[in-house]
Design a protein around this nucleic acid. Structure first.
Lengths: 115, 115
DNA sequence: TCGGCATATCGATGGACGTCGATACCTTGC
DNA sequence: GCAAGGTATCGACGTCCATCGATATGCCGA
């Protein structure tokens, strides 16, 4: 009655790197798993100049300043944005390389097997 | 002292579609925001046959059967996998189109502005 | 029809997370 | 030095979530 005798059970291939890498990827995906944060990143990445001052994010997002600051911190710690202090203001930029990493991880072609 | 007089303040472009689409994308990213779930998806997608029986996922993931079942449900509801019942077993497959959607959303080229 | 296996659901629990007001820190202009 | 504004941190609160054991449902073979 076992499936093996009927279907020829699949030998689930467990990639050994999996467990460690999954943690790192999850940190990034977790950063994208909140609507407000996704919009923050979108606002930053869609700028013609490539950068946004933190103070200009509060109004469009519609959350309090501490909340936006918190989300920016999460994005920063996930490696999705960089910040640069200029005067009183802090400018945020998206990190294309990190985004490319995530896209690669979501590629169903052979590369995904290595996730 | 305002930034506008010094830097020429950025006019943060708010995409109107943003809020609605962010919710849909977040559902998928949230599904990927757990290490166990990421590994489940990886195991499914990396199969040569393209499909995996649910029963073969419990052992590699190292979580209880109800937990794995829960994770599969989340992935299914996020549109990342499909399931097909054959006899007593349920076979899961990845959904390449949905993965492609996410890759597109993470593209820093113009497309990302529409997220 | 019955026993066994695969899968899903339920209920409970401990921990993580989003949110905000209050507040502290730092920089700038006066 | 002082006042004002931008930003981060803190503490608290309510909610969501991952996890598991127990249990229900469904399918198959005997």
């Amino acid at each position: 009655m076992t499936k093996k005798t009927i279907q020829g059970c699949c030998s689930v291939l467990v990639a050994p790197v999996e467990e460690r890498d999954a943690e790192g990827l999850c940190l990034a995906f977790k950063a994208l798993s909140d609507p407000a944060r996704l919009r923050v990143l979108s606002l930053i990445a869609s700028q013609p100049t490539g950068e946004v001052c933190a103070c200009d994010l509060v109004a469009p997002i519609g959350k309090s300043q501490p909340t936006v600051s918190h989300h920016l911190k999460v994005l920063f710690e996930a490696g999705l944005v960089t910040k640069e202090k200029r005067g009183s203001w802090i400018w945020y930029r998206a990190v294309p390389e990190r985004l490319a990493e995530l896209r690669t991880a979501l590629d169903p072609s052979p590369a995904f097997a290595a996730v």
